[in-house]
Design a protein around this nucleic acid. Structure first.
Length: 619
RNA sequence: GCGCCUGUAGCUCAACUGGACAGAGCAACGGCCUUCUAAGCCGUAGGCUGAAGGUUCGAGUCCUUCCAGGCGUACCA
């Protein structure tokens, strides 16, 4: 059950914003004898055709007062004395909305002071909650690809948003470093690796190990082909259930499969020689991951390893068995009944005594609760695991952990290419490192083709290209709301025009350029006489910032912020185009426009950083 | 079969959780650089929101039934 309505978490506000909401609340309560609170007052932008800037929708009031919304709006408009509302020069009713016209020059001083001096303008009014958020969660058998990049970038951004909105955030990674898939790359390296190491090949460790994982898949595919050929069967001709049976037959006699399974048994038995190899290969992969994370700006406060947490899952199941909460079947396997949750029974331990995926997640969750006593635990995991997390939460609840209701699966959609799906097993996925390299190259080419001349050193040019590449990739992934599948078009992501990271970074560098050239220094309480429509658009957009961050945090949806920042940048670009700043008609106007620019710059910088996008000063 | 998710402009995506005439970008077409960075700005064109019913003062959004796609439904992770 939702306990909060969406509009009840405003961010910090300037004095004028706060005052306006208070006065409007009083006004409504007086004229309609309601008892609204300021939290009930939310503004939309007035549409172009209507005279006004901010619109207050009277629809919720219509139910309380049992009158039509446009009647209520009309009455409010008729009985409103503008003098009581700060900086409001006119009110009008239209289509059930009360439209307020703001006086730009009275709003600006207060707004600019607030935006430039408030330490954390995104902060919400509720007490902070302790939130543990898990993202990335890679397997140590292959390098990270585009799907992981979406996860990493999304997780990082949501963590940043929650933190900015005022929560205490603990960012955790979970390394899946054990299991049959790990054994596959190990096996292939042992058999065919001839002692290769990242040092001898000069390759990144995760790429090296990943090569052996792909190799395993190609080898077993060949073996499968031979198996079916020898039996004189064309698998394509088989009915579905027959095919499943034949595949099982194949795996049962496949030497690659058998050897991998033997390796897993040896690993679980603690075979010392094997554990050494396992540790060595994992360390290669982890070193590779560290490089990737660091380049992408992905950080964690704590890293969990499944090889360390899966045992606590086993223990939990053991004690649940004693307590009669789970049942052992005749073949020795252990199950939990989830009939109360209207879910299928779930296996918790195999008949051969080894643990399954969900057992590890039970253990990890328990350990995290012990470590942090969180108010909320968010899992950033692909939406193909929706069912898995429903089951996980149900299990924890059945085992008597009331905090199970504080777990939350932040499911995000798959990343597809225009040609179709990514397939990491076949090694056709878009590799995270290669991707950044390619997009960076493209950015570099655009920089060099441009007729702008900067005295960039080679090193500076490289840094700017890297920043633009990151901006391009991250914005591309974050502008789509999380639960949607997204289509990744490599060519489009390299295109720096349109709703892209580089567009925003470019706008930022323009703002910075103006401020640098003018050596602007903000004086509080300055007076404003600006009055153009475009300047007012900027003011109105700036006023939305804190609310947008609050909403994005609450919905765990950075795309809201991504969208907003694009709108802000677009209005700024229009402002830049239409109005002179450094060469303004008077030095007063110049200072005022610079102050407005400074506010935009700070908001755009903070917003982009929440999305994990770097903001180079010059492009 | 059952469950979950998704269908919005030619393409990629928005739409503050039920509110004003459904908005952007790309692609197309037409304008704007001797002027603070043209990676920019302005304009034109593009829609029966998959279909049909229903609830409501009001539906892209909620309900029902279809249609299409994706993902689950493992003693895989």
């Amino acid at each position: 059950m939702e306990t909060q309505s969406s509009s009840e978490r405003p961010g910090m506000e300037s004095n004028f914003q706060l005052k306006l909401r208070e006065e409007l609340t009083l006004l409504i309560n007086r004229t309609l004898t309601q008892n609204l609170t300021t939290a009930d007052i939310r503004f939309d932008r007035s549409p172009e055709e209507v005279s006004g800037d901010l619109a207050f929708g009277c629809f919720p009031l219509a139910k309380l007062a049992r009158r039509a919304p446009n009647q209520i709006a009309a009455q409010l408009a008729a009985q409103t004395d503008c003098a009581l509302l700060p900086g409001v020069t006119a009110v009008s009713a239209s289509g059930g909305y009360l439209n307020l016209t703001l006086d730009l020059s009275s709003w600006l001083p207060d707004t600019i002071d607030f935006l430039l001096s408030c330490e954390q303008p995104e902060k919400g009014s509720l007490p902070p909650r302790k939130v543990v958020i898990e993202y990335s969660s890679p397997n140590t058998n292959k390098p990270q690809h585009l799907g992981h990049v979406r996860n990493n970038v999304l997780g990082q951004a949501v963590a940043n948003l929650l933190s900015a909105a005022g929560d205490e955030v603990i960012r955790v990674n979970l390394i899946n470093d054990r299991g049959i898939h790990i054994c596959k790359s190990m096996l292939t390296w042992i058999k065919l690796g001839e002692g290769e190491t990242p040092e001898t090949t000069g390759e990144k460790g995760d790429h090296l190990v990943g090569r052996y994982y792909v190799r395993f898949e190609t080898e077993i595919k060949l073996e499968r082909k031979r198996f079916f050929a020898a039996a004189g069967i064309d698998p394509q001709q088989l009915a579905a259930d027959e095919l499943v049976k034949r595949e099982q037959d194949f795996l049962a006699q496949s030497s690659w499969q058998q050897e991998a399974e033997e390796l897993l048994l040896r690993w679980e038995a603690g075979d010392k020689e094997l554990l050494d190899i396992w540790r060595t290969m994992n360390s290669w992969v982890l070193a590779g991951f560290d490089q990737t994370y660091s380049r992408y700006g992905i950080t964690f406060d704590r890293t969990y390893f499944e090889s360390e947490t899966y045992l606590s899952g086993r223990n939990e199941i053991e004690s649940a068995l004693q307590a009669g909460l789970v049942q052992r079947r005749e073949d020795g396997s252990i199950w939990i009944s989830l009939a109360e949750e209207e879910l299928e029974d779930k296996l918790l331990q195999r008949s051969n005594g080894t643990s399954v995926y969900i057992t590890q997640d039970v253990g990890t969750a328990l350990q995290r609760y012990e470590d942090y006593h969180f108010d909320r635990l968010i899992y950033v995991v692909g939406n193909e695991q929706r069912y898995h997390f429903r089951v996980l939460i149900a299990i924890l609840r059945q085992l008597g952990h009331t905090w199970a209701d504080n777990l939350e699966h932040l499911a995000y959609g798959m990343v597809n290419l225009p040609e179709g799906k990514l397939k990491s097993r076949e090694g056709t996925a878009v590799d995270a490192d290669d991707l950044l390299q390619a997009v960076k190259q493209a950015a570099r080419q655009v920089m060099e083709a441009s007729n702008r001349r900067h005295d960039f050193s080679e090193q500076e040019a490289d840094q700017v290209a890297e920043a633009l590449g990151l901006g391009a990739i991250k914005y591309y992934l974050l502008r789509v709301s999380a639960n949607q599948d997204l289509q990744y078009d490599p060519e489009r992501s390299v295109d720096l025009n349109g709703t892209t990271g580089p567009y925003l970074q470019y706008a930022y560098s323009r703002m910075t350029s103006l401020l640098r050239k003018s050596a602007f220094n903000h004086q509080p309480q300055m007076t404003f006489e600006l009055d153009s429509a475009i300047e007012k658009e900027l003011l109105l957009k700036l006023l939305e910032y804190a609310g947008v961050v609050q909403l994005a945090a609450q919905q765990r949806n950075p795309s809201r912020l991504a969208q907003y920042l694009y709108e802000l940048a677009r209005i700024f670009n229009r402002f830049w185009h239409d109005l002179p700043v450094l060469k303004a008609e008077s030095s007063d106007i110049r200072e005022q426009r610079l102050a407005l620019t400074a506010a935009c710059q700070r908001i755009l910088q903070r917003g982009l950083h929440l999305l994990g996008i770097p903001t180079p000063e010059k492009i």
